[in-house]
Every structure is written in C-alpha cells, then in structure tokens.
Amino acid sequence: MRTNDVILQTTTKVVFFIIFLFAIHIFFAGHYTPGGGFVGGLLTTGALVLLLLAFDLKTVQKALPFNFVIVIGIGLLLALGTAAGSILFNVPFFTHAFDDFTLPLFGETSLHTAMLFDAGVYLVVVGSAMTIIQSIGGDA
C-alpha cells in the first residue's frame, strides 16, 4: 500500500481532523440528537482508514502508536465498570444516574453516567474495527 499522491496526502491531513472532530461531536451529541458511541466510533475509524489509504500502514502506526487490542480492553472495562459501578450504590446492575450542572464555560450541562458507558462502546468499536483493518492491511 505504498502511494505517493501529494494531493491526497495534503488533503487528508486536513480532512482527517474535520472528520475526527465531527465524530467527537456526534459522539457527545448522541444522547439528544442522532449519534452516539457506535456512529462516533465508526466515523473515527473511517477517518483513520482515510489516513491509511493516503499514507502507508507503517507511517500511521508511527503517528498513532496505539495497540488497538488494548483499546478494546479499555473500552470493555469502561462499559462493564460503568454498569457494575451501580452495585456500589446499592442499586441494580446497570442503573444509570444523571443530573444537571452549571459548569463554567459550558453553562447548563447535564452529566450522565450513560455517557461513560457510551465511551466504552466508542472505544470498543474503534479498537475492534482498527484491529481488523490493521491486521488485514498488514497481512502480506
């Protein structure tokens, strides 16, 4: 997968961040408007795939030195931990809590434990999809 396309590479550098920011936005917006962990995760993966197509596998791995299998693990732990955390407060497994806060800068905001769970989903989706793509791409 060695390409030497200057236009693609230059565009990609900009577009990657746009897609990535959009993914983050969609992820956080998920609770109120369409979006969420799955879509956010997949969009992030899409951005990374674009990087992979424009540059080669080694370059991307150097720029983003994650082991995506570990990302899967962190995601699963986060999701399971959020779900199990409710046991500590003596409520059934998977009970979420939420409340409205007034934060400086953000103003009226509601914080939600479901968000943490969704973050777990996000990480697992990115981790799994990237594991699959990197493995296939790296298979000589």
Partner: peptide, 18 residues
C-alpha cells in the same frame, strides 16, 4: 427516567444496555 432525547441511543445505552 433516562434524561435523554435521542430515544434510539437511550435504548442502546440505558434501557437495553445489556
């Protein structure tokens, strides 16, 4: 109950989180 607006997403992370 769930403090959300997007029902599909709330089902995913809350109602049917399992």
């Amino acid at each position: 109950e769930a403090g959300g607006g997007n029902i599909v997403n709330v089902i995913l992370v809350d109602y049917r989180g399992f």
